[in-house]
């Protein structure tokens, strides 16, 4: 089945700056695609092209089978969009704003009341309904922005940094909400927060300098981390040098790094040679040697490490054609 969101060779040029360079993505129903990348990587620009705000310089976006450029109203009808920074009509009260969005989206009669009530309940906006949006906290503003995006129960959601500015509880609620809606929709979220990818995304795409440099499930991305399958060991006391020597001698160990610990304990990270699992051997060795082990676990990999590696190690693509 073709994805509900299809970006085909999307390219956007602002004057001499190439903001998005030939990005193709496909998101199917039930998928939550996490869009990662440093600031200015082209995440928002790509989202603006998918939602029909910006016409691409080249390439096409197709949403729910509608070409966003040629059949824009039909495409926009099935998209819920939270733009970057959640812009809202600040002078309006929340209820009037949601009524306006419902009217513009053509939701009439009893359905309008139902849609608004549902959005209010999902985003917990009951307390602020009669307040002007300008007077709301950042977290509430973001939730009003989300409420307008889901008001018409769209098949496709495009959310640009949906949890930015929320406190940890609110973040958790929004992530839960996204997960709840995920089965029935195709969703794209952009974020800087890497834990969010693990928490809500079924797939992650990392872009830098306008290009996709990694695309896969969060687990697959984690597997690219240098820490993937590394074993962390913390020993309460003992001769650090001796322990280090014994660990290095284990078969399958490619490298051991020592981690200084504030409490005086000795920490070690063991990197296996490709494809090896070390935890059993390390555990057996520690028992045999009688080391007072505080901590022993396998690292699943670190997304921030992958993120840093792929976004900084990348040679600037097509540097000569820029500017």
């Amino acid at each position: 089945m073709a994805g509900m969101i299809e970006g085909r060779s999307l390219t956007k040029r602002f004057g001499t700056i190439l903001a998005v360079d030939d990005i193709s993505i496909s998101v199917a129903k039930g998928e939550v695609l996490g869009f990662l990348g440093p600031n200015g990587a082209g995440k928002s620009t790509t989202m603006k092209m998918i939602t029909g705000f910006l016409p691409p310089t080249a390439g096409t976006a197709v949403v729910c089978g509608h070409d966003v450029a040629r059949d824009s109203i039909a495409a926009k009808r099935c998209i819920g969009y939270l733009p970057e920074g959640a812009p809202l009509y600040g002078e309006m009260v929340v209820r009037a704003f949601l009524q306006f969005v419902a009217a513009v989206r053509g939701i009439t009669g009893a359905a309008r009341g139902r849609a608004i009530d549902r959005a209010i309940a999902l985003l917990h906006l009951e307390r602020v309904l009669e307040q002007p949006i300008d007077t709301l906290s950042k977290g509430f503003k973001r939730r009003v922005g989300l409420a307008q995006a889901i008001l018409h129960d769209p098949q496709v959601l495009v959310l640009d940094e949906p949890t930015d500015g929320l406190d940890p509880n609110q973040k958790h609620e929004v992530r839960t909400l996204i997960r709840q809606m995920a089965a029935e929709k195709a969703i794209i979220i952009s974020t800087h927060i890497l834990e969010e990818v693990d928490a809500v995304c079924s797939r992650a795409v990392i872009i830098a300098q306008g290009r996709i440099i990694a695309d896969g499930s969060p687990a697959a991305l984690l597997a690219r981390s240098r820490f993937h399958n590394a074993v962390s060991l913390t020993v309460g006391s003992g001769d650090r040098v001796a322990i280090l020597g014994r660990l290095r001698a284990l078969p399958g160990v490619a490298e051991v790094e020592e981690r200084a610990r504030a409490d005086g304990a000795a920490g070690f990270v063991l990197f296996p040679t490709a494809g090896r699992s070390l935890i059993a051997e390390v555990g057996a060795l520690a028992r045999a040697e009688g080391w007072p082990v505080d901590e022993l676990h396998v690292d699943p990999g670190r997304l921030d490490d992958v993120f840093r590696t792929v976004t900084t190690a990348q040679p600037p693509p097509a540097a000569g054609t820029r500017h």
């Binding site: 705000f53 998209i79 307008q148």
Partner: peptide, 14 residues
């Protein structure tokens, strides 16, 4: 200035 133009122009309106 406020960016709401992005909201308005992504609504299904002509």
């Amino acid at each position: 200035r406020s960016g709401t133009i992005e909201l308005l122009m992504t609504m299904p309106i002509a």
